[in-house]
Design a protein around this nucleic acid. Structure first.
Lengths: 157, 157
DNA sequence: TATTGTTATACTCTATAACTATA
DNA sequence: TATAGTTATAGAGTATAACAATA
């Protein structure tokens, strides 16, 4: 097998400006998410919260006494995966597992005062980080983006 | 510490319709991406390509003789992570690593005929899967979504 | 000295399956 | 039987650090 006559290594790479991938929603969603989430981690990562821990705390703070199963369902993850997250939040004394008299299988999740305060601080920091990172978008574009993403989420079965 | 007087486990969960999370772009990006990518895997997963393998093959098919470093840069992943992907594509005889005379450190990636054919088929399947999944969006909304996501991607440093 | 491809390694995230205690 | 929480386990996906060959 003969070697190719000329190998133009750089060919077309600069003007990959429009590869097929650029028109795929999935590809663009992933790339955009990676940018937002890496900025999230830079902002809150240091002794703060991982995205999924933040999300869990958010729902516990807003819906006190939510159960783990309900929380997992709302977050779109498995119950089993939630255990470590709740363990971490309980270890940090930001929430408590509370036994429910009616049904002794379930444990309601109640935010502590420290948990509510930590959540409020984290939430504000996340909002500020997004506002700055996404300042390339006008307020209208931001709203439009949220609307379209939510529309995709409604597809879910 | 006394137990809470009443624990209303279901309270507010149905109307989580608007939790703080719903207004965060990062959260919505992730949830939307998970829906699109799980559908991608359902469509192409069986003996097809994982998303990142598809992306790599796509760029090799469109930019023959791209190097691994260039490819990693374009995909936004590390060189080291690309090795297994290229190994898989080479094992499946969809591309070849070709020595470059000018610079014997690099290896140009050339799609095989089978690789080009497989890519064309996969690309069409992905487009069809997105068209169906995202039929909740009008063509204009689809374009808008792509435009806004690309705008976020440009933020990258 | 710097870069390409590579290996080894570890960490995060997530899913599956099985267990226990309750219902 | 079915459900809630849990454990064990494994598989993606990705990053870091170091190495050999080459520039």
């Amino acid at each position: 097998m003969a070697a190719p006559q000329q190998i133009t290594t750089q060919a077309g790479v600069e003007d990959r400006a429009h590869s097929d991938l650029e028109d795929l929603v999935g590809y663009n969603l992933k790339r955009a998410y990676l940018i937002v989430s890496s900025d999230f981690k830079r902002t809150l990562g240091q002794d703060g919260f991982a995205p999924r821990v933040f999300s869990a705390l958010s729902l516990v703070a807003q819906f006190p006494n939510i159960t783990q199963s309900e929380l997992a369902r709302n977050l779109g993850i498995e119950r089993s995966g939630l255990v470590a997250i709740i363990d971490e939040l309980e270890d940090r004394e930001l929430l408590q597992r509370i036994a429910v008299p009616n049904d002794r299988r379930v444990q309601a999740l109640a935010p502590t005062a420290a948990g509510l305060a930590a959540y409020a601080r984290a939430r504000d920091a996340v909002r500020a980080h997004e506002a700055e990172l996404l300042s390339v978008l006008s307020p209208e574009e931001n709203e439009t983006l949220l609307r379209l993403l939510r529309k995709i989420r409604e597809v879910e079965v």
